[in-house]
Amino acid sequence: MATHAARETGGSAQRYTGVVRATHWIAALCVFALLVTGLEIVASHPRFYWGEDGNIGMTPLFSIPIPSSRATVPTGYGYVLPDQNGWSRYLHFQSAWLLVLTGLLYVIYGLVTAHFWKNVLPGGADLRWHALRDRTAYASRYNAGQRLVYAIVLVVAFPLTIWTGLAMSPGFVSAFPATVTVLGGQQTARTLHFFLTIVLILFVVVHVAMVWRAGFRSRAGAMITGNLRSGDE
């Protein structure tokens, strides 16, 4: 399979291979489901703590100013949201599984085909200031700034989100207790999981905004069909 921009076919160039496109959209769907269900789960206790324990008898590190789906949580709102935790939790973990398995496929593909080095990870020359500010590079490849952001999301943000998620699981931490103790406790893991979610939301917002600026139809179309029409450059 060709890596992007490598194969010119008439008026269009293949920018994304089938594996990259399929994993991108499955991941997008999973991230969307994780964000929605994550918000539903947080609504049952929109307070955050530091350390091992935390509950409404204790002072939170901070609270988010939303109504809660539990009457026991003091929120200042005069009403309680309907409980959506059942399906939200089922879907949250099912989406997490699909995302992790899809991510695994993508990482193996990226390593085997060298897609990472060629298209995603920033190299030495990419990190110089003028390269970071290069606005013309997008036509054929990602510029250094984009590469840096994608690399941080892939190598740092997603793995940490998975880790802090697992560190909240009583079953998982019974087998691997260090995964939660090095973080400083189960409630710390929960709070970090929330912060990482904010980072991922910011990434999604900036990512979609950049696609919008570059021409939403052609760029989103390229991630669906694989080809960027030459007239779009």
């Binding site: 049952s44 206790h45 324990d53 935390g54 409404i56 935790n85 939790r89 009583p170 189960q186």
Partner: peptide
């Protein structure tokens, strides 16, 4: 031991 509720709160 730690008791965690599915809602997110916990105690030891």
């Amino acid at each position: 031991t730690h008791l965690a509720c599915e809602e997110g709160w916990s105690y030891v």
